[in-house]
Amino acid sequence: MPLLSVTNLSTSFHSRRGTVRVVNSVGFNIDKGETLGIAGESGSGKSVLCYSLTGLVPQPPGTIESGEALFDGCDLLKCTTEKLRSIRGNRIGMIFQDPMTSLNPYLSIGSQLVEPLTIHRGLSKKEASARGIDALTEVGIQDAPRRMRQFPHEFSGGMRQRVMIAMALINNPDLVIADEPTTALDVTVQAQILDLIGALQHKHNSAVILVTHDLGVIAGICKRVMIMYAGRVLESGSAGQVLSRPRHPYTFALQKSMPAFTKRGNELYTIPGAPPDLSREIIGCPFAPRCEFKIDKCVNGPCQLLVHKDGHATACVRINDGDLLLDTKYRAGFTE
């Protein structure tokens, strides 16, 4: 049985201009100790998906229209607020994008760090602080007892993200949701943090959902990948399948447009147009208007995620019907 099993999750936001379907019938499973990467551009619904799972979607204007998210037998979308609160920060840890704003500047690192312990485990201050020191040491912060008494402004961005990781992991959660954990960090610090997440996950055997816009980050640490666009899953499979032999023109186009895959001086491949307006109903494939392979049935026909025999799923009608093969020769131009 998977640790978390999400089926048919849809989340909408209601505004004066109409209903925006930000997440549209998304489903996935994640097992214990597994790493799932969710990739997509801004506005693809990847962050809202995570917020929906942890009950952090502001309602109103947001509503979870449908779906089920079974986490260890409990439906995260329907359980009571109290129940959800006892799961959040305890069995599900969260790491947010911006370490500069996700810590309260007026509270010491220590008091913020041990908060999940005192809330969920009812530990005494002394025990909690001892655990806090261990947790900081574990994420590679030296001189932890002194650091516990310091305030967020005395920490650099990378250090704060380490604190956030320590906080997310302090209750040994079964699942960690990391929403763009390294986007605000420099490359060398990003490498440190990804390394750390990988090592800690291995040690605690937690499952990790890593949300990012950077396919490179996913290639580094994720076993499975899900590509989102316009609130839907367009492709999913193992990292090797999706990134090396993409089966959806969107993934294919995204990769081709990355500078690393084109020789210097040559034009980069560009995806024409812009993502669709989600306040309008989309019939057919959401990527069709920008797709170089689109034919009539892409625009008019239904578009469903279909799992192939090798576990690699794609929502491209043409590939599912077998009348399109993506040529991955462009990768030959890729030079280390």
Binding site: A219, G220, A239, G240, S244
Partner: peptide
């Protein structure tokens, strides 16, 4: 050297 090695590459095999 460190910068180059820290640069993520969207290719799991190479990575």
């Amino acid at each position: 050297k460190a910068l180059l090695s820290a640069m993520p590459v969207a290719d799991p095999e190479k990575e």
